[in-house]
């Protein structure tokens, strides 16, 4: 038994998303009801309790490198597949980047990055991200 989801011609498939995080990946990519092309969110795919995952298929956009990094913040180990003419032309695993600029937002309300027009900046420090301004450390998932 399965659900058939059409393959897409031109766009991006985000696969191996941690179960339950598919919706957040869509939010992060700015996909909402106003999006004009086909989008599929497939939840709880796979067998067994621990192997379940979510998949997001989006017709019409090739997710940028920057967004790929951001996806890693909420869905580590997700894969981002660029599709052209129905075939995978590029496959990248979302990995927590060593450094990020303009990706994510510092959760510290007293951080200058939340008061001035400056790009957010984070550097990985022992599995967590340190803000380049207020120097506080946060878990990756706190930045999105």
């Amino acid at each position: 038994m399965g659900i058939t989801v059409d393959t897409i011609e031109q766009g991006t498939v985000v696969d191996h998303i941690r179960q339950g995080m598919g919706i957040r990946v869509m939010d992060l990519l700015g996909i909402d009801k106003s999006y004009p092309h086909r989008v599929a969110l497939v939840m709880n795919v796979g067998s067994g309790k621990s192997n379940k995952k979510d998949i997001v298929k989006i017709e019409g956009i090739l997710v940028s490198e920057e967004k790929t990094d951001a996806i890693a913040l909420i869905a580590p180990n997700a894969t981002i597949n660029h599709i052209q003419e129905g075939r995978v032309v590029k496959k990248k695993k979302a990995e927590l980047p060593e450094k990020m600029e303009g990706v994510g937002k510092c959760p510290n309300p007293k951080c200058i990055s939340n008061h001035q027009d400056v790009p957010s900046r984070f550097a990985l420090d022992n599995g967590e991200y340190r803000c380049g301004y207020c120097e506080r450390k946060f878990r990756a998932s706190e930045l999105v």
């Binding site: 951080c111 200058i112 001035q116 803000c131 380049g132 301004y133 120097e135």
Partner: peptide, 13 residues
């Protein structure tokens, strides 16, 4: 000296 954290870093830029 400024109450916002990271202000000196931004100023230096």
């Amino acid at each position: 000296r400024h109450p916002l954290e990271g202000s000196a870093r931004v100023a230096s830029e």
